[in-house]
Computed example of a mutant assay.
Amino acid sequence: MKKKRICVLATGGTIASRPTPNGLMPALTGEELLAAVPEFKVACDVDCVQLLQLDSTNVQPEHWILMARAVAERRVQYDAFVITHGTDTMAYSAAALSAMLENIDRPVVFTGSQLPAGVPGTDAEQNLLTAFHAALGGRAGVYIAFGGKIIFGDDARKLCTMQLAAFASINRPLAGRFTGGHLTWLAETQTPTGAFRLHDQLDTRVAVLKIVPGLQPKMLELFVDAGCCAIILEGYGLGGIPDQESPANFLPAFTYAKEHGCRLVCTTQCTYDGVDMGCYEIGVRAQQLGVESGGRCTTEALLAKLMIELAEQGS
């Protein structure tokens, strides 16, 4: 039986870090990381590409483009991809590639660790094993493999800064679990609905504004004046943003944004369940002034989708 070909795209992160006088910094290559899971050299043919060597705090949209293009350029050569990545922005990168790699017909699995590879108690080896099993499982789509969970890439969020089970699936069941050395798929296979398409143009003029007590509507107008073409509003609960009953009435600011061609999309500060702007009068008024509902999408997923939509509308 022919062995599957797996391409590992290494980008740095905690999993690849080593101590320095100024704290942890990425240092290990992808090849060095793979030494932690030598069994997969037997189970499949593995090639490694060192795309980046970054603390994921420094990952930007141009790096998403680099990752997406790397997958697209090698898609026919390999059966699956594993991307090693820092945890802090992994959910953003996975959400971005979920949108950028439309109808991807291969598994693309992100993983990383809370503790560097090789240190006592590290979760690096287990997460790498989880990622490789998910990659070899053959289920098309973009995923995060972490803490024994397989999470759809556009529904993941990092909830913990230190706990090893750092990621959760938001508003969607897990794709799978890896326990006792065995992978169990919990969701139906994602079947591509059309031909593969790479979306590698992003318009980064998208901002996120969290609504908090005391925030003045002028801040929204300042974002518009700064050149934002879309703003994600993290409202309260089901999508609440102060209206004319509040000293901080955002309704005129919504009109200002609309007049200047800036899209407003509302999501929630709550972790789960999304927004329903038709539930309360306060949400209905916002929609009447052009604020769009983000539904059950995460902020991470909305950010990537808006960047793609803006870029393609402007092309």
Rank of each mutant, 00 (worst) to 15 (best):
D45W: 05
Q126T: 05
S169N: 06
K149W: 02
F196R: 08
L9Q: 07
Y92W: 10
T299I: 02
A301R: 03
C297N: 15
R205S: 12
A145I: 08
R205I: 12
F132H: 13
R5C: 09
C228N: 14
L238V: 09
K41Y: 15
G86W: 14
K41S: 15
T298N: 08
L186H: 14
V59G: 09
S17V: 05
R263N: 07
E281C: 00
R139C: 00
E73C: 10
A91D: 05
V119L: 08
I232M: 05
G237L: 04
H199A: 05
Q163N: 06
E259V: 01
D273M: 06
P192D: 14
G180L: 13
T299K: 01
Q287I: 01
L159F: 12
A68G: 10
N249H: 10
L264I: 08
A248K: 10
K41P: 09
R106D: 09
D155V: 02
V206T: 06
V49L: 08
M307L: 05
T29S: 12
K4I: 02
A195S: 13
G239E: 12
V212M: 00
N58R: 11
D154M: 04
L159D: 14
G180F: 12
M25P: 06
C262R: 00
E73L: 11
P116K: 02
P213T: 12
H182G: 08
G239S: 06
C48K: 01
I211F: 00
P21T: 13
V8Y: 12
T14I: 13
G240N: 15
E31V: 01
T268I: 02
G227A: 03
L164G: 01
S246E: 15
R75K: 10
P120C: 09
K258W: 11
C262Q: 03
L233H: 12
P213K: 08
M100H: 04
Q216C: 03
L233V: 12
Q287F: 07
V49M: 04
L202R: 08
A36M: 14
G194R: 01
F178R: 08
A43L: 11
L66D: 15
L209K: 07
Q190T: 13
Q163S: 03
A124W: 02
K258F: 08
T87Q: 13
P213E: 15
